[in-house]
Structures are given as structure tokens and as C-alpha cells.
Nucleic acid binder design. Structure first.
Lengths: 222, 222
DNA sequence: TGCAAATGCGACCGCGCGGTCATATGACCG
DNA sequence: CGGTCATATGACCGCGCGGTCGCATTTGCA
């Protein structure tokens, strides 16, 4: 947890630090990321940073578990209540994609915790984040099971499958769509403008169709 | 590329080095992994290692693009020719799972390259590996499209979806199944015995069903 | 205005890393 | 036996890191 001093900081200074930290941690894994760099780029002496956070992990943890989720919640806003379960799922996916496209660094921040690492605390953080995401998705899917739209055979496995699809899977598809590397997208505002809301809707639709009907050809399904 | 000296090494010494390298690179990201550690654990002076490989990246690249694929090919063996496309896909998935379970370190080695990193060469390596995997899977799926078993609307996106499912997705499911963390599985032979061939078949079947039919409830499908 | 508490600050520390190099060793050969 | 060449070895280098510490500066209050 940051110290009170941190929260008492002039907003401009605090923002500078936080933004540089987000940039650093979105481009590099926890281990690779350098507190010295963050401080240097934010023009804040390293000694001061250690007055705001206990250590590197403290800053990382706060970003990952407090600040990023807060900003995401702010962006996503209240979910519009759709009638149909599949429409609801589609919206859920589209909102996730919108966040990825509009705030790629924040999205990457969480994904970067997936890196295989020997730092056990980071692994713990990642697991917690994953579990939270899974729980959220599971709740969505449970509604579908309740309304009879979704097969109910194994909700846990289904949740994991869907989660993988709309997480790493969609990221992959989007990058291919943009024809760019992740690091280029992070650096460029221009690239991501090419995945506008209309295109995102289409991709979300395609994803939902896959989840609902699979890839088996119509005529031949057993 | 390793030097000729490396290939002329007494087998026992070479194996020691390679094995320790696999362990190190499967537990840590490229940046986190330490050549000094590998050398120390293999009881080979660091100076000697630099007689076998140009640098850390050279060793990593060789492991990732030569040695691991070679061992995987050896393990998987020739694909038994099934008649039905879906049976073929199921076998493809089951073999992949078997490799993951029997050689978790080798499997992790490749996955570890997915780590977000600022080291551009590592990103290049990862992209090459992914593309190779995607091409292989695409070929499998293309057969399904040709035989009329698979929807042919967008083979590229489909390939990416399926790839994500049987890659990170199945890994997740398996870890949940084993009730263990990745690092525990790497360390323990015991754990992975619990995912025997019969259980793997079942999981592969479940995955194929999902890919073929999706999650939509039977009665309500449009 | 003066003092104490909070904060800013940057030089400094120890560490482990990737990588180098001068020298030692020993196999092979005329 | 002497000389050559491939190989083995570990002390050593420079670097950037995470983190510390003591002093300078500012702030808030009586």
C-alpha cells in the first residue's frame, strides 16, 4: 500500500509517477521493469519514490490490484442490461475489447503478470487477478445456464475456455487484425483507431457465434 | 548456434548443461534466467559455457528453436491416421496434452517465450514459434474445411481461436484439474501421473465437443 | 518569527549479472 | 620428446539494479 504521503502529493506529480509506472510495467515484465527508470522518466528522485511505496513490489501490487481495476471500472461503466443472454455476452466482450483498444497499457499491465516468473509474490498477484476475472465471467455464464441458453454440463471448464478465448485469444486476433506487434500498438495512438466500435462489434459477434455454435458445419452436426 | 566444440563434448557433460538450461529457462523468463546459475548447477565453469555458445541468447535460441522441437517431434511421433476429421483433431489435442504432462519443462520452455519483454530478439523468437504452431494447426483445420466438417467462413480467425483453446486454455484447465500451481507441476513427477491417458482422452473429447458444437443449449440454437 | 515535523533529495552501498581474457592443461603428431 | 592447437578455467570487469541514509528544504503551527 502506498503511504499517506503519496496520496497527499500534488496531483500533477502523482500522475507523472503513476503514468510512467504504467508505461514501464506494461512494456516489461515485473523483473525487467526498473524502478530507477520509472523515477528517472518521471523526474522524481528514487529516494522520494521510496517515501511513497515500500518497495518495487508495493508499487506494482497497488497498480495491479487497485489503480488498474479502478480505471477499468471507470471506463467500462455500468453494464447496459440487455434482454438476451447472448447479447449480454456480446456486450461484455465488446466492452473488454474497447478497453483493450482504448487503454492498451492498462490492459497489458494485467496481462504482463502472466509472465512465468520465479518471484512467488508476482505469481500470487496474477492468480488473484485471474480468479477475480474468472469469477466475474462465471457469474455472466451462470445467468446463461439459468436461462437455459447455455449448456450446463461443466460450468467451470466452460468458464475457463471462454475466458481464454476472450482474453489471450481475442488479443491475438486483434493484433493480427491490426497487423502490428503488441509493442507497436502500445506506442501508437493511430493504430488502435483502426479498430473502431463498428469493427469491434463485428468481432464480438463472431466470437459469440463461435462460443454458441462452435465450428462444426451446419449440415453435418451430430 | 552452438560451436562445434559443444557438439564434440562428452555426452554426459553436454546433457548436464542442456538439462540445467531447460530447468532454468522453464522456471524463469529469459531475462530472469541466469547463465551463471545454469553453469553453477551444471558444475561447468561459466567461461566454458561461452566456448559452447556465443552468449545467453544463443543458448536460449538453440533450446527454443532446435532442441525443444526436436524432442517434441521425437515424443509425438508419427500421427496415426484417423478416418474422421474430429477424431483426428482429438488425437492432435491429446498428443499435445500428453507432451505437456510428460515433458512439462519442455512445454513451458516454449510458453515462457510468451512473456512480455523488452528484449526484441526474444519477441521475434516467440513470434516465429507461434507462427509455426499456427501453421501446423491451420493445416489440420484446413483438412476439416476441405472435408466439409468445418465451417469455412474465416479459417484464420478460427485457427487462432482453436490455438488459444488448446494452448493456454487447456493448460489452465489441466492445472485446475491437478489442483496445483505450474511450478509445483514442474517440480513433481507425482502430480502429473494423476492426469493419465484415459483422463486426457476425456478432456480432449470435451474440448473437441466445445470446438464443434459450442456452448449453446441444444433446444435453443437458432 | 521560530521551531518541529514532514518531505525532498541524490550520493552511496552491495549484489549478481552477462561477458572477457590470460593462463593452464592435455591430446595429438612429426 | 617438443611443439602446436583445441579446450578448460576462474578471476576479473563494468554495469544497472533495488534499496538506504543523512542532510537540505519546505510546511504548518504557536
Amino acid at each position: 500500500m502506498p503511504t499517506n504521503t503519496f496520496f497527499r502529493l500534488p496531483e500533477e506529480r502523482r500522475e507523472r509517477l503513476v503514468n510512467e509506472a504504467i508505461i514501464e510495467f506494461s512494456e516489461r515484465s515485473y523483473t525487467e521493469a526498473s524502478l530507477s527508470q520509472i523515477a528517472r522518466r518521471a523526474s522524481i528522485p528514487k529516494g522520494s519514490v521510496y517515501q511513497y511505496f515500500e518497495d518495487k513490489l508495493d508499487l506494482y501490487r497497488w497498480l495491479l490490484t487497485e489503480e488498474a481495476p479502478r480505471r477499468k471500472r471507470e471506463f467500462i461503466g455500468a453494464a447496459p442490461r440487455e434482454e438476451d443472454f447472448w447479447a449480454r455476452l456480446e456486450t461484455f466482450i465488446e466492452r473488454g475489447m474497447a478497453f483493450l483498444v482504448e487503454h492498451p497499457r492498462l490492459a497489458r499491465l494485467s496481462a504482463s503478470a502472466a509472465a512465468p516468473t520465479a518471484v512467488v509474490e508476482v505469481r500470487g498477484l496474477y492468480k488473484a487477478i485471474c480468479d477475480a476475472g474468472l469469477a466475474e465471467l462465471r457469474a455472466v455464464l451462470a445467468e446463461g445456464a439459468a436461462s437455459g441458453d447455455l449448456k450446463t454440463s461443466d460450468l467451470d471448464v466452460a468458464t475457463r475456455f471462454v475466458s481464454t478465448l476472450i482474453g489471450p485469444g481475442l488479443t491475438d486476433v486483434i493484433l493480427q487484425e491490426l497487423g502490428a506487434e503488441l509493442h507497436e500498438v502500445l506506442a501508437s495512438d493511430n493504430l488502435r483507431k483502426r479498430l473502431n466500435s463498428r469493427r469491434r462489434r463485428a468481432l464480438a459477434q463472431q466470437t459469440v457465434l463461435f462460443i454458441r455454435d462452435g465450428l462444426g458445419a451446419e449440415g453435418k452436426r451430430k
